[in-house]
């Protein structure tokens, strides 16, 4: 049975400028489960008094059962995870890693897969392409980067997949040819995008403008919980108050207080951490992609991994 894994850092590699790849192998040895392209794991990292649990896409071959790899960009305003991995993590360290979970799965029916990555958004596609290539599926990757020096995995992907990989370096004046990309693609093509929100919005909007149906469009929102004003939440079952700091998510504050709510993605996508609101005097600042606009307006449910609160009193069914 598989729950959280204790995994040892066996290699650290600067994949590109500001992007560090981490290889993790199980402390107890043995084979890991294979996983599916697009899957992420949640990695727990100590950050002062807080344990940061961040989701990272697996960016290795899913058939390599000896280890998992993640790649982490150094964030300008790091909440802790990125700085920890870049500055403090060392080979030999042991981290707690959750089981792979996939919220960005390829549509296996596709006649062809078009992947559009921006920057660190390349990670889920590294694993996807390994699966596509092994299964003999048609695919192409379009990868936008600031510069070739910042293009993680670019060399290895071009070696593996040749002309199916196209790189567009901004400092060379190259731009993603979005309009051309969505033209003349065979029926049954699916489009996937991962990267900065602006890039994903542009990709999806271009495809929609070219008449693509929503069913063929897939995106993964790489989001960290937003910082904000501090607030206090009251636990309905115990009456206990828990303070949420500006750079802490509600879920993280609850975990720091010894409560362990259910979660999977920690990015507002999967719905697993949906929590019932018992009492509300104020406004929930919904930060998730899961609730419908109606559910947001009702505010009977809060996704505690991403959402914050502003007001006098928030009581949760915890």
């Amino acid at each position: 049975m598989m729950g959280d894994l204790q995994m040892r850092v066996t290699a650290l590699h600067d994949e590109a400028a500001g992007i560090r790849r981490v290889r993790l192998e199980p402390v107890e040895g043995g084979l890991l489960p294979a996983f599916s392209g697009g899957a992420h794991v949640v990695v727990a990292m100590p950050d002062g008094d807080v344990t940061r649990r961040n989701p990272y896409s697996l960016c290795c071959d899913p058939e390599d059962r000896t280890g998992y790899e993640i790649a982490v960009a150094r964030a300008a305003a790091s909440r802790g995870g990125s700085a920890y991995i870049h500055e403090r993590l060392a080979v030999g360290d042991v981290l707690t890693v959750g089981a792979p979970t996939n919220l960005f799965q390829p549509d296996w029916r596709a006649k062809k897969h078009i992947l559009v990555a921006g920057g660190i958004g390349i990670t889920p596609f590294v694993a996807m392409m390994a699966q596509f290539a092994r299964a003999g599926l048609a695919f192409e990757l379009h990868y936008a980067v600031r510069s070739r020096a910042a293009a993680a995995f670019a060399g290895v992907l071009q070696d593996r997949y040749g002309p199916r990989v196209k790189i567009y370096a901004a400092d060379e004046g190259a731009r993603l040819p979005l309009g051309a990309l969505v033209q003349n693609q065979p029926l049954g093509t699916h489009l996937y995008t991962c990267g900065p929100e602006r890039l994903m919005d542009a990709v999806l909007e271009t495809a929609r403008q070219a008449g693509w149906p929503e069913q063929a469009l897939h995106s993964e929102h790489f989001m960290a919980p937003p910082p904000g004003d501090p607030f206090t939440v009251t636990l309905g079952r115990s009456g206990r108050d828990v303070a949420v700091a500006p750079d802490q998510s509600l879920l993280e504050a609850l975990e720091a207080a010894g409560i362990n709510p259910r979660y999977l993605c920690r990015g507002g996508v999967c719905g697993e951490c949906a929590t019932k609101v018992v009492e509300l005097r104020g406004t929930i600042l919904h930060g998730d992609h899961y609730l419908t606009p109606e559910e947001r307006a009702e505010s009977r449910t809060i996704m505690i991994c991403m959402s914050r609160f502003s007001g006098d009193r928030l009581v949760l069914d915890l």
Binding site: V182, Q185, P186, L187, T189, A207, A210, G211, W212, A216
Partner: peptide, 10 residues
């Protein structure tokens, strides 16, 4: 017709 069509065809 469909075999000669592209994405964007409804």
């Amino acid at each position: 017709e469909l075999s000669r069509s592209h994405m964007g065809t409804r």
